[in-house]
């Protein structure tokens, strides 16, 4: 097998394994299904370009999340005129549920809305920690933060959610 074929196989496997999780992550970060799909597509293409250059990727999962995180940041920068709060006020594009779960649409929307109401710095770590199921060191590596900072932000994010849920 040539190097190109090896690379393609590795890339395909990564897509099968992580596309769902990455989409979910993007969705809760940007509150839009369409935007989340675009961001996932963009992130995978960027990763392929990187691999094409012959660069070695040690941990493909972390790399993909890092690319996604950067893509989300770029997305926000393009929409600088709109504040995050304004985005929250304008509402969101709730996903259509496709699973067999008996959870109601109302409960579903409620979950999403709680994350949406968090500010970005807490949202990202909360999503990674509780939805993506990542450990703190992994989050710290992806966000290029110290583990201590990540822990503090998770703690504060939980506090915010608690307050939101008490309302």
């Amino acid at each position: 097998m040539t190097r190109e074929q090896d690379m393609r196989k590795e890339f395909e496997t990564a897509y099968e394994n992580y596309a769902d999780a990455l989409f979910r992550h993007c969705f809760f970060r940007v509150s839009s299904r369409e935007t989340a799909l675009d961001l996932v597509q963009e992130s995978f293409l960027k990763t392929w370009d990187y691999m094409q250059k012959g660069e070695k990727i040690i941990n493909l999962k972390s790399f993909l999340y890092r690319v996604v995180n950067n893509s989300i940041i770029d997305f926000y920068r393009k929409r600088k005129s709109e504040s995050l709060d304004a985005l929250a006020e304008d509402g969101f594009d709730p996903p259509v549920r496709h699973n067999e779960d008996i959870m109601s649409q109302t409960e579903y929307n409620r979950a999403i809305s709680f994350f949406e109401k968090l500010s970005e710095q807490y949202r990202s770590v909360m999503i990674m920690r509780f939805i993506d199921g990542m450990a703190i060191p992994e989050i710290a590596e992806i966000l290029n933060e110290t583990e201590n900072n990540v822990s503090v932000r998770i703690h504060r994010g939980l506090e915010k959610i608690r307050k939101l849920m008490e309302i």
Binding site: F23, R24, F28, R97, M103, F114, F130, I131, M165
Partner: peptide
């Protein structure tokens, strides 16, 4: 809340 969030998928 988390369970609900995890149900979001492609």
């Amino acid at each position: 809340l988390i369970d609900e969030a995890k149900s979001v998928s492609l």
